[in-house]
Design a protein around this nucleic acid. Structure first.
Lengths: 205, 205
DNA sequence: TGGATTATTAAACACTGTTCAATTACATTT
DNA sequence: AAATGTAATTGAACAGTGTTTAATAATCCA
């Protein structure tokens, strides 16, 4: 049944086209400003066709999640070379921040935007597995640090979440333009300087 | 010219009505799902009239910012009673988190949502002044802590931003439903436990 | 009362996500 | 090769969005 297989392959190809077009438009215009009709125009099909490949707009952008997590994880790979867990933890934060600031829209989609995450109710969803594996990297690193005597009196889960929250807080305040309450001059450097403070804190924690 | 004044007063009244209706709907439906027509229905006027009182939808919801900051500052007032700056700082974080979790939509508007902050280009805007005065409270408390010998080796501005980022990170990850990557059982308690870890860290920082 | 000003409306514009009946394309069977 | 049945694709429609504007209603002042 080579024909049926080709059919499936072609169907997958169009799905891939939609995803690629969606990503292209999304990266340069953001979530809200990328409409179904925009995507349809881009792939030169009618808008209706998109609903034969995706349930709704959210499902399209939710599919892009995965790519974001893959990219983030790829960047984390070099951490394998870092023996000392404490140094690894510190490098991890730096990579996370860098990823967020260099891929603001992707980060937005992954960790800030409401819509696409909303009707992912079951925890078995691929996006949670992806996210979980990324968080696991943090968790296990923190765990190693604790085994080496760091973070005395802390508990693994809350501390890991706290660390995540700190870096997320910094980048999301910048991405969503709330850093402007600070002195204008300091805005550009603030995250780098704050992260430096954070490293100091981690050493003493 | 009592008549002119009454006119102005009446004009203010309708503006107030719009704002009140907008807030009512916003609190129970969120930003996206509150439309101009919804607000118009609520005050029993035609949709067009709203544009005689506000430039656009963003300006309406931007006006609600202020109320949020007022409420937040009101909650912060009891901190005046706390002598020790370190205790005050800790209590401050707790109040901030509580405010965010009890007024999620308002917090969303103040610190997460993109739209209404977007075309507030000039830093003289009331919203920045409001926000700045709130941040000043944090900054000055951190400053007092430093004068009492805490946070050695840190700098005021980056450290203050770091602390803000940490609490913002925790609540915004919860508000935008990204805590689900954690063990399901831990979700409810995670912020409280993490904040406890944060207090420990502050003592050692 | 007449004229100018202002407040308010209804209708329209250009969008949005989504659905669905109708159409086209195509592989399989006769 | 023609007919059939299935799947892909379309175009139009629905109900909604923010926003603009010409026309209307209301009000104040001379």
């Amino acid at each position: 049944m080579g024909i049926a297989e080709r059919k499936i392959r072609e169907k997958e190809e169009l799905k891939e086209q939609i995803l690629k077009a969606a990503k292209r438009l999304f990266i340069e215009r953001g979530f809200e400003k990328t409409s179904i009709r925009n995507i349809a125009d881009e792939i030169e099909y009618s808008p209706g066709i998109i609903y034969h490949y995706f349930q709704d707009k959210n499902e399209i952008f939710h599919s892009l999640h995965q790519e974001g997590f893959q990219e983030l994880r790829k960047r984390m790979e070099i951490l394998g070379a870092v023996e000392d867990p404490m140094s690894r933890l510190k490098a991890m934060g730096k990579i996370y921040i860098q990823f967020a600031l260099e891929n603001t829209d992707m980060y937005d989609l992954m960790f800030i935007i409401e819509a696409p995450i909303d009707h992912v109710e079951n925890r078995d969803d691929l996006c949670w597995i992806e996210g979980d594996s990324t968080f696991n990297l943090l968790r296990s690193t923190v765990h190693e640090c604790m085994q080496k005597g760091h973070f005395e009196g802390h508990h693994l889960e809350p501390l890991s979440f706290l660390i995540w929250s700190t870096v997320h807080g910094m980048v999301s305040l910048k991405i969503r333009k709330r850093v402007n309450v600070l002195d204008v001059a300091a805005v550009d450097q603030i995250i780098e300087n704050s992260y430096h403070s954070f490293l100091l804190i981690l050493d003493r924690a």
